[in-house]
């Protein structure tokens, strides 16, 4: 998994690619929690277009990020969900709890 950050005003966009599994999800979790709990960035956007695979540990990291965002009053937005990611989120029945946008433009819109 590769994760890189871009900053746009008060928005941080994480571009994530590769596989999110037991080996790599701690890195995602750490990046999300730092951005939300420590830096208290008002809006954190995850670009998941390059994610080839995600498992329950990856979903758990996203849920932790979502909880952290609610705790600090930030927004966590996902976009670029491909079929694999969408299937897993639907299987977890968690797809409705996330704020999901179709593209980056929507996710950073005021």
């Amino acid at each position: 998994m590769k994760i890189s950050a871009r900053h746009l005003d008060k928005i941080t966009i994480f571009d994530i690619s590769g596989d999110i599994d037991l080996a790599t999800s701690p890195e995602l979790r750490k990046a999300l929690l730092r951005e939300l709990r420590e830096l208290k960035t008002p809006r954190v956007v995850l670009n998941l277009a390059g994610v080839r695979y995600i498992d329950s540990s990856g979903v758990a990291s996203l849920v932790e990020g979502l909880k952290a965002s609610r705790d600090v009053g930030s927004r966590l937005i996902l976009f670029g969900l491909n079929r694999t990611v969408r299937e897993v989120l639907q299987l977890s029945k968690l797809v409705k709890i996330f704020e999901i946008c179709e593209n980056e433009e929507q996710s950073v819109a005021p």
Partner: peptide, 14 residues
Amino acid sequence: ALEDVRPGGLGLHF
């Protein structure tokens, strides 16, 4: 229970 939104516990369900 999937209604319980929290990290973890999804693996067996999957």
